[in-house]
Design a protein around this nucleic acid. Structure first.
Lengths: 216, 216, 216, 216
DNA sequence: GATGAATGAGGATTCATTCAT
DNA sequence: TATGAATGAATCCTCATTCAT
């Protein structure tokens, strides 16, 4: 039956639209108020739907953040391609930083909700409750990238180095997003410079593997 | 007139104790929940007093944060002395970083509420509402320090440089506080290294004034 | 677009009932406690709903009073017809007073909340904050009626005369509502008599248009 | 012992000052906020004393109102003399009205708290709870005055007439107090006119006793 | 007497979530 | 699906009043 096939598709189509609408609203509210201070009612209102509708698609506030996070990641990849690739990992450091930072910066300026989510609820000890998955996911990829670039690095050091770099980058990103025009450009340059200078002794300025090939 | 002088502080013995108790409780709750998610009732409960008592000393949550912030600053100064001094400003960069970062790190490890306050409510655009004074105050001092060290720097650049450095340091501090033992030590070293390498091209490795004395 | 039109009122059957119920409860509480001393919780309790429900329909206490006021006016008009009409304005004074006062009296005896609202919060200087709209609306109509009856009266005098009359009538109404049976009848008569005697020199006993054209 | 005699006097003197101070504050707060919305803490603050001090002299909010009321009556009498006297009762009506209304008006313009108290908490049914004693006392005196002037009047009628007159006068007084300058003058005249015209048929324009002496 | 601290119930209002339609 | 109604605990904050000093 055509009906049996189309019905669910229709439903899914409408549902997909609703979800997108809700996530857009959530992004906007999270940006404006911060995650903690955002209310599901406010999100529903912003989306122009009733609270009930929101809960038809998300079991709770957290789930919205989580889904928003993963969609943003997907969207960023769709726009800028994969960023934590093996090729990038082996680039000279300055190019690596460009390759990773630029897409992030560009995407975050267009979608500041990304940052709002990564920052998360502001309790030091209250990590990893669900929507910090975004944070965790990105960190994992960064760790993997480091593992590719510096296979000999002790895992603990590698993880810590990733954490440091990520933390610095997030903080810098915040400044970038908060400013505009020339100031933003300045912060972009400085963030990259900071990363380069910080990482250079750890990773070497050139790509590790190629670097070691001595000229005859 | 003794009366006129004594009026404002008669039975402040008990009151002062209560205030301290409340601020201790607030620090604890802010750390555990983050500022936004902390409720005055929770603070009162933690302090073992009724909500009404809390409001006898503070008109609202903000005021608690503000007072806590200023007390922490004072306490840090009492413990570690002034940090943004002219002498420090003119130290060789590595020593300058030690002089400024070490007290902060040490104090924040002992008083993690400090960081919770500096981070503030998590909305990007919602800055400077009162308890961000703490953030602003520290930033100002850093700016002044930079002005002493690099008088020729354009004010805009100087401010942005301060903002960058402060943001990086805060982010690093967060990592430091979140870890313990050897890991914490590692982060401390890395944060300082990061600052050094980042700032060195801007500020010069040695003190500016001395640096300019060329060897014959 | 059917959707666009239906949106604002979909499930308002239950809601409308709730609103009526809440306003009934509010009327009762306002009467029993006075506006200032009435709490939204008390109103919700009286209506048998939770506080949250009340706030789904009204943003605050004021709004309840305002809505109750305008509904009472509407209800009075539905029951007794318009009272401040041009025809009434031109009636002989005694008939005018009957025409205006009787419906008010009857309606207020049945709905004493009306008076509770008109009296408003009991601060001399704190007028016109929103639910005094009821008072203002009635006063305006009275002013208009006077303008019809006495077009030559100076606007200032007219307004003051309206204010006097209204104040006297309200005070009298209070007595009427507070009593019952024969006493109430007595007060009704006296209030009307008072108004007649007070207004007669101002408005003339007969209609202004001087159908009193005397015979030669 | 001198001490034994002076001590209590001193105490009483200081206490009296405190009481006066508190009542002044209460008058001010009652006027500004209305009785219901006035808080004892606000009164204490306005008086510049602690809440505890207030409760050393008054057992509760009501008591403040009661005491304030009776002091205002006393003060009015001290300023304008007794007003509900037999002589006044027997004056021609216009003079009677002047004799009673003028002091009230004058005193209320200077002490608007008087009115705030007479109006009382704004619940129709919540009368006579204590600080309505002021209202009751004045009403009683008015009743007595009527009894003197019209001994033959049926007590019920007399009481009701007093109630009517008093209600009208209060309402008029409110308008008078709320206005200033020429407008106030206008309201004063109108209130008196209203009373005269209303009462004339009831009381006779001239004094009853003298009036009845027919000229030969 | 005087103070300021203390209370805890109660004020208005919001919120995440559920339910009936 | 979608809605709007419903909830009740939790929010911040105030109040009349009491108590220790």
């Amino acid at each position: 039956m055509t009906e049996a096939e189309e019905r669910p598709r229709k439903r899914q189509a409408r549902g997909e639209r609703r979800i997108a609408q809700l996530l857009r609203a959530a992004a906007s509210v999270f940006c404006a108020e911060g995650y903690t201070a955002s209310s599901t009612n406010a999100i529903a209102r912003e989306a122009g739907v009733s609270p009930g509708t929101l809960y038809q698609f998300f079991p709770n506030k957290e789930a919205i953040a989580v889904e928003l996070g993963s969609r943003l990641v997907a969207e960023m990849e769709a726009t800028h391609g994969r960023v934590f690739t093996v090729e990038n990992a082996l680039l000279p450091l300055d190019e690596l930083i460009d390759a990773v930072a630029d897409p992030f910066i560009e995407f975050n300026c267009a979608n500041p909700a990304f940052l709002a989510l990564i920052k998360g609820p502001d309790a030091p000890g209250k990590v990893a409750e669900g929507h910090d998955e975004l944070h965790a996911a990105l960190l994992t990829r960064l760790i993997e990238l480091l593992a590719v670039r510096e296979p000999d690095l002790h895992p603990d050091d590698r993880d810590q180095l990733a954490q440091m770099s990520f933390a610095m980058f997030k903080a810098g990103l915040d400044l970038v997003v908060q400013h505009e025009g020339e100031q933003r450009e300045w912060y972009v340059r400085e963030v990259k410079a900071m990363l380069y200078r910080y990482l250079e002794p750890h990773l070497g300025a050139g790509a590790v593997t190629r670097d070691t090939v001595p000229a005859p």
